[in-house]
Design a binder for these strands. Structure first.
Lengths: 230, 230
DNA sequence: TAATGTGAAAGGCTTCACAGCC
DNA sequence: GGCTGTGAAGCCTTTCACATTA
């Protein structure tokens, strides 16, 4: 879901062989679940089982997988390994993705040390921070460089994905520099909206937004209970 | 009528005066944008301006706000302060929400120190970790307690929202304990599916899933370019 | 028999476009 | 003139239900 504002945005699927966005967003869930099943020694899996393991319902699983082609066996299910390959290829995880993380505060530390990246083809190609005191520190086996090095790292490491974990005030300028240096996908953890050219992809994660949504439902539950009780 | 398959899950809106889930998920964005506008000294805002500031389009803004009632002035726009109040109340942010964070690794640290919580009515009521070496450490002004204290903290502090930032292997057992102690909303950062009773709310954030979705689009762009070039 | 793959139906979300109001 | 509020249309997603196949 690229940011952008007034841009009229063409209707998502432009005619190409189209797997719906909603399905794409679930493929990583299946991949994670399949990893667990494979470790448990399963060689085949039914849509029902995969559904349970990934927290989705089975009709959705079947539809989603059907977008990748018909690789299941009726009466049996899907081959776990084949499915892992199929999904990984579809998501583009069979290649190496060098990632640059900007902003090595608590969150940047957490991201740099996060095991879930490496296991999916993401490689931390660089860490940069504006604070000279942090430069040189090693996090997860990678040394922190100064923000000045941003451009040179992006070019030297062919980084196409940048992760922004800076304060909100710095995010747009960091983003501009990433884009100017050649980054075409940005994952933004700063609580702000980023403006980017239309060909650049942005996704955002805002920790406090999720909590607020939880609070909404929590409050509702309480109001409902109070209403019934009164 | 729906033949029970997996989790029957009621159709989202249970009959009450219904603001759509998709709109709820955007309210925090508006709230954030309005904060910025207020700081900039704006007293009124049009749907177009709010749209730009929150990364949404103006038709959506108007529809979303209309679910809260008709508080705009035609020809003028919305009153910033009034909108802040309206949204905060709708989300349940006018009350204090004590939160317990479980798992004080890098991510737990980041969450405990995150400023965006306090400004929205969330208060870190406790931090717990399974590692005795971490107990006693202070993070963001709150001391880390041992995992054993989970239940007593939930009860003493009336915690209804729990945040799980443990490794995946520990998440389900932590979740079970939170729920047993009385927590009714869970924010899960562990990369796994949590089973909870139907009346408990769960939201999840998986850092690597967002990256994978980015990779999908990134790959697509490259393939498309290569395709055109070839 | 067991489970996939898929048209068709249902539901929800977004966008359009304009009447209504300040 | 400018902007909100909102039916209606269109699009996307989910779910159903069953023919099909190993």
């Amino acid at each position: 879901m690229p940011a952008a504002s007034g841009t009229p945005r063409p209707p998502a699927r432009s005619g190409e062989r189209g797997i719906p966005e909603a399905a794409v967003a679930r493929l990583p869930l299946y991949l994670r679940a399949l990893g667990g099943l494979a470790e448990a020694g399963e060689t085949t899996v039914s849509s029902e089982e995969l559904a349970a393991a990934s927290g989705v319902n089975s009709a959705k699983v079947r539809k989603d997988l059907s977008y990748l082609g018909s690789y299941g066996t009726r009466g049996v299910g899907y081959d776990v390994q084949q499915l892992v390959h199929l999904i990984a290829r579809e998501l583009g995880l069979t290649q190496d993705w060098p990632v640059l993380i900007v902003g090595i505060g608590n969150l940047g530390h957490a991201l740099a040390g996060y095991g879930g990246f490496a296991s999916r083809g993401f490689r931390v190609a660089g860490l940069v921070d504006a604070d000279p005191a942090r430069v040189g520190e090693e996090v997860g086996g990678v040394a922190v460089s100064h923000l000045d090095q941003l451009e040179s790292i992006v070019r030297a490491e062919q980084v196409s994905i940048g992760v922004i974990a800076t304060p909100a005030a710095a995010a747009q300028s960091v983003c501009d520099r990433l884009v100017a240096a050649g980054v075409t996908s940005v994952l933004n953890f700063a609580p702000c909206v980023l403006a980017v050219p239309p060909q650049v992809g942005v996704r955002k994660v805002d920790l406090s937004i999720e909590l607020q949504i939880l609070a909404f439902h929590e409050q509702r539950r309480n109001v409902a209970v109070a209403g019934v009780a009164t």
